[in-house]
């Protein structure tokens, strides 16, 4: 990421379940930063391999936080601090290395999203996670305003 300016994500989650640290704008677009810190549940989980469920939760949080920064997506992302709900997962794919040989503390992932379609309070969103410029996880998530 080229930008060093980060903003606090708009999410109702608190420690330890807030998995997105900040939102950043870079050359490739807006991204949600997911840090593996010593205290992060993602880091603790890596001792037995990184569970896909936590990654999907991080991807859902990233998508909602990113959508909340876009006025046009506001009604699906919810008002600031209001919960969005993960209601569906499709085509989830993770790199083997990410699951079986996960990185330790200090690593940052960058999550991006693209709204595929929306209707009422529901949105279908393509979400991906990058590490060092490589895509390591992708999924299509169905999200609803809480």
């Amino acid at each position: 990421m080229t930008s060093t300016v980060g903003s606090e994500p708009t999410l109702p989650h608190g420690f330890p379940f807030r998995l997105v640290d900040r939102i950043m704008d870079g050359a490739d677009g807006r991204r949600a930063v997911i840090s593996l810190t010593a205290c992060s549940p993602l880091t603790h989980a890596t001792r037995q391999g990184l569970p896909a469920t936590l990654l999907l939760e991080a991807m859902a949080q990233a998508a909602l936080a990113l959508m909340a920064t876009d006025v046009s997506e506001g009604d699906v992302a919810g008002e600031a601090g209001q919960p969005g709900l993960l209601v569906g997962i499709d085509q989830a794919d993770f790199s083997d290395a990410l699951i079986h040989d996960p990185p330790g503390p200090g690593v940052e992932f960058y999550a991006g999203c693209q709204v595929r379609g929306r209707f009422g309070r529901m949105a279908k969103v393509g979400v991906w996670i990058e590490r060092e410029g490589l895509e390591v996880a992708t999924a299509e998530l169905l999200l609803a305003a809480g």
């Binding site: 209601v87 569906g88 595929r116 379609g117 929306r118 209707f119 009422g120 309070r121 529901m122 949105a123 279908k124 169905l142 609803a144």
Partner: peptide, 26 residues
């Protein structure tokens, strides 16, 4: 249900080339 509705909106747009912009129309 409402999850199916979203998939249906996407289907109508992608396969029939018609957009459904809001819930009232839908």
């Amino acid at each position: 249900d409402s999850i199916d509705a979203l998939e249906l909106v996407l289907g109508v747009e992608q396969e029939l080339g018609v957009r459904i912009d809001d819930e009232e129309v839908g």
